[in-house]
Design a protein around this nucleic acid. Structure first.
Length: 100
DNA sequence: TCTTGGGCGCCCA
DNA sequence: GTGGGCGCCCAAG
């Protein structure tokens, strides 16, 4: 378990329900600016039954980084909606009650 | 808005 | 050693 993984997973684990974060932001918070792609790679290798909130990680455009027809996209969308987000196309809209 | 193109750090064949 | 390919990012048009 290298430093990068443990830090990223640690930060990820601290993200409360109803929040979301970009790959680049997550990397930066973990202390590895510029490691956005590695974060994506890391998410990919997580086990399906992980309790980590991988679905709260999106790209900098506030979009889901999957094509709409894919399985992964649908699973992420479902989880986010479950936490109060509204998603149109692959775009997350602002939750008006919490004002973000 | 959407599309391109360049850049990025790392993994794998 | 080398060339592709990623759950990306950013700046232009």
């Amino acid at each position: 378990m290298d430093h990068f993984k443990s830090q990223v997973l640690l930060i990820l684990n601290e993200i409360p329900a109803g929040e979301c974060i970009a790959y680049g932001e997550l990397a930066k918070l973990a202390g590895f600016p510029g490691y956005a792609r590695q974060v994506g790679r890391l998410m990919k290798i997580l086990p399906k039954d992980t309790k980590l909130p991988w679905h709260r990680v999106i790209n900098s455009q506030r979009r889901i980084s999957f094509a709409e027809n894919t399985d992964a996209y649908l699973r992420q969308k479902a989880k986010l909606e479950q936490e109060g987000w509204t998603i149109v196309g692959n775009k997350l809209t602002v939750n008006e009650l919490f004002n973000r």
